[in-house]
Computed example of a mutant assay.
Amino acid sequence: MDFSDNIPKDLSDEEMVTEYLNQCALYTNQDERIANFHKIQEILLRKSPHLLVKFLQDVLNFTTDKNASIKKALVGFIEELCRVHEVFIPRVMMPLHMLLCDESIPVQKRVIQAAIGIYRRTLSWLCKAPTCTEDMEQAWKQLSTIKLEIANMIDSDNDGIRTSSVKFLECVVLLQTYPDETENKRSNDFSLDDVPLTLKVARRRRLEEEARLVGCYNYHNVIL
């Protein structure tokens, strides 16, 4: 069922996002809310990304929504946003951290799964930037906090949380170590040798040491 049938088709994208946001906020039917949220994601991230400046905060406000499914959908939105519009990474780190601390186990698990790609994208973004701004530094600090909290979740009583946390840490190790010289590196691979020696916010030696400790399962003792 298309839950957007009650929205006029002659509205502009901006007007449609406003309508979908209102319906997400006011409606109680979960399927209807999720469908409208995905419509928002389609418009803002794929069809009319210029509207992100106006509506991003409205979308991020769903961080405090009571419905776990909406918050999982929001994590998916943040995940795609970081992949296709890196400039907004600093805007989403705080909401992402809040979602990781959510009381819902499925929401926590979804954040950890998304963090794998977000961590890789953010580190690559920092390394390719001509200069590192204050917002970028703050985003990295917040992501480092998220990384530490996920590391602490490997002792979770929930199997899904533990498994997802281990996969995330495996990603950290791969990104923060030098590549095997015997293997051919693909063009889209990222490793420690892609980190500029001039990058102060994430220095090679510190990243390498952190990866070594993760590999030795002593990550809990690392002070980021």
Results as ranks from 00 to 15, higher is better:
residue 125 W to S: 14
residue 196 P to M: 08
residue 149 E to Q: 04
residue 192 L to R: 14
residue 188 N to L: 12
residue 183 E to G: 00
residue 141 K to H: 03
residue 188 N to F: 14
residue 100 L to D: 10
residue 183 E to Q: 10
residue 109 K to I: 15
residue 155 D to H: 04
residue 180 D to A: 11
residue 147 K to G: 12
residue 141 K to S: 10
residue 127 C to R: 10
residue 139 A to T: 04
residue 113 Q to W: 01
residue 116 I to L: 03
residue 94 M to R: 06
residue 96 L to N: 13
residue 154 I to F: 01
residue 147 K to T: 15
residue 135 D to P: 00
residue 207 L to Y: 01
residue 182 T to P: 08
residue 101 C to T: 14
residue 146 I to Q: 08
residue 169 L to N: 13
residue 182 T to I: 10
residue 192 L to N: 12
residue 148 L to P: 01
residue 125 W to Y: 15
residue 98 M to L: 15
residue 178 Y to H: 08
residue 196 P to V: 06
residue 180 D to S: 15
residue 143 L to M: 11
residue 95 P to E: 04
residue 130 P to T: 04
residue 112 I to P: 14
residue 149 E to I: 04
residue 171 C to Q: 14
residue 117 G to P: 10
residue 186 R to M: 08
residue 92 V to H: 09
residue 193 D to L: 10
residue 133 T to E: 01
residue 108 Q to E: 09
residue 209 E to F: 11
residue 122 T to G: 06
residue 105 I to L: 12
residue 138 Q to S: 14
residue 180 D to E: 14
residue 194 D to P: 11
residue 130 P to G: 03
residue 103 E to P: 02
residue 121 R to N: 11
residue 185 K to F: 01
residue 89 I to P: 00
residue 195 V to A: 07
residue 180 D to K: 10
residue 146 I to C: 11
residue 187 S to V: 09
residue 203 R to P: 09
residue 147 K to M: 15
residue 112 I to K: 13
residue 128 K to H: 02
residue 136 M to Q: 09
residue 96 L to C: 13
residue 144 S to N: 07
residue 113 Q to L: 08
residue 131 T to G: 00
residue 169 L to W: 04
residue 124 S to I: 15
residue 128 K to N: 01
residue 141 K to F: 03
residue 97 H to I: 00
residue 111 V to K: 00
residue 88 F to D: 05
residue 118 I to S: 05
